[in-house]
Nucleic acid binder design. Sequence first.
DNA 1: GTATCTGCAAATGCTTTGCACACCC
DNA 2: GGGTGTGCAAAGCATTTGCAGATAC
Lengths: 152, 152
Amino acid sequence: MQNRLETLESILERLRVSIKKNGLKNSKQREEIISVLYKNRTHLSPEEIANEIKVKDKNTSISSIYRILNFLEKEKFITTLETDKSGKRYEIAAKEHHDHIICLECGDIQEFVDTAIEEQQIKIATNSGCKLISHDMRLFVVCAKCQERNRV
Amino acid sequence: MQNRLETLESILERLRVSIKKNGLKNSKQREEIISVLYKNRTHLSPEEIANEIKVKDKNTSISSIYRILNFLEKEKFITTLETDKSGKRYEIAAKEHHDHIICLECGDIQEFVDTAIEEQQIKIATNSGCKLISHDMRLFVVCAKCQERNRV
DNA sequence: GTATCTGCAAATGCTTTGCACACCC
DNA sequence: GGGTGTGCAAAGCATTTGCAGATAC
């Protein structure tokens, strides 16, 4: 996991600005979700996020979680990752851009950045006359631990 | 689109072997789906495939299409691609491995291979002690045509 | 006070499954 | 003839939406 580039308080500050900009009102839940994702060092599913929030607020509904996650993604406070067919997972965006290594056996996720590949991607897009907006790269592997386990 | 590496007849031959190996029986539909994907030069959704097949066979059901697509993917006759939230698209696997450039505006899909990136991916996985099984890279762009259209 | 936010339940959309009949070997 | 394939309708599952009450400004 990469270092976080920003304090939680600083993110929440940006969130409040973004809320004003969009003519919306403050809500505890939006900040809660940001906090949960900031404090957690893993990629969480909407349901996992809901469960964490329900510890404090029993009544929280999964539909609000989805609504807020969509807003936070649109505003680039969080990013999504699909590790398998079970749905999306979310992580805080306040980290350097990175791609993912996903273990097909245990589901473990590692992160990495490779500037050589990043540069090459821009070249590839440009050579086709395209403007690169974003990319997405997932390496599906068997991780060291799972290889070890299989060997036994 | 890359060159196809194999004739349709040769693929169907392999399909028949695979069917025997799995203790299954021949069916016109499996061959039909392979043919549709072979002849089509685009990535098709299950529904689009169903529509093409319904031209010949009105009664074809979407559930059979899904069942067969899952089988064909498991047996590596076809591969999947998710271009957006609308679901999976399928293409024939009888092409060289490649990755995809997806236009965010018109949905157009281009294919490419970059050996430098492929090699780098193996290095990245190996450096983390992982065994690379497969990967997946999507470049999301605005294609030349859409840039042109936006300029007007 | 008015507009947004929330929880709940219902709806949606893609995909899978159960079942009865059709078909292949 | 016994097992597999198919169409149909129903079920599943993640996600979205409509609505009425709650809350923020």
